[in-house]
């Protein structure tokens, strides 16, 4: 379980998050949406322990987060940087050696599903293929928490489709919780259980997506637009 208690994060010139309280339980795919700079990436990095809160506490399964929480958390960065000297196969082998929960067979299965050649050098991969590789490395881990920062951004529709299908195929919702930040709401709205809407460092909405459709007859984009405009009470 992921828990935020009065979490704030300030950078040099900017308040990134303000007094966030949040509890997320396993078995769900949760979308983090909101405009650029609203605090989506910051939220994920805090859970991954790659940054530390300025105030408050973040815990994963009751453990206070440091970078070593990566034992329980798989983090897909929005950055495309890799160790360029590795081939796809070597990178997978390296990850397998570093994370005890990394499932080699599953990685092979996802790699084939993503149509990535094991012997291509990472530094020669296209942006789309690097995006696919990130999915392989992240989803091959049998880990309770999966964080994905903009897994679809800047990729062409075919790659986006493959990634969304890959997510559905290889996530284990019996055990995992998946957090995805994205701008491509349309692409992921059919696979989200819950959605968190962030604006100016604050969570201004937390909804079950099917209930939103059921009770308010709203799609995600319409809801986001409404809440952002202030037409809709930000129920949490």
């Amino acid at each position: 379980m992921i828990k935020f208690e009065h979490v704030g994060k300030r950078y040099l010139k900017k308040v990134a998050l303000k007094d966030i309280n949040l509890e997320l339980k396993p078995g769900k795919i949760v979308g983090l949406i909101g405009e650029n700079g609203s605090g989506k990436s910051t939220t994920l990095k805090l859970i991954a322990g790659l940054i530390q809160p300025t105030s408050g506490v973040v815990t994963v399964n009751g453990r206070r987060v440091t970078r070593r929480i990566s034992e329980h958390v798989a983090y897909l960065s929005e950055l495309d940087e890799f160790y360029g000297f590795f081939t796809v196969g070597e990178m997978i082998a390296f990850f397998a050696s570093q994370y005890p929960d990394f499932n080699r067979e599953k990685a092979e299965e996802i790699r084939r599903f993503m149509k990535l050649a094991p012997d291509s050098k990472i530094k020669n991969l296209s942006k789309g293929n690097r995006g696919r590789l990130k999915i392989v490395l992240t989803l091959a881990r049998e880990v309770p928490v999966v964080l994905m920062d903009e897994p679809l951004s800047g990729l062409d529709p075919m790659v986006r489709d493959a990634i969304v299908k890959g997510l559905i195929s290889f996530i284990d919702l019996e055990r995992q919780i998946v957090l995805i930040t994205t701008h491509e709401i349309k692409e992921v709205e059919t696979i989200l259980d819950e959605v968190l809407l962030i604006k100016g460092g604050e969570i201004i909405g937390h909804k079950n997506v099917e209930e939103l459709r059921d009770r308010e007859n709203l799609g995600l984009v319409e809801w986001m637009t409404k809440v952002y405009a202030g037409d809709c009470p930000p129920t949490v």
Binding site: I168, S169, I171, T190, I191
Partner: peptide, 11 residues
């Protein structure tokens, strides 16, 4: 079914 229709397995 989730993969075929692009829908969350929970759904």
């Amino acid at each position: 079914m989730g993969v075929q229709s692009g829908v969350n397995p929970n759904t």
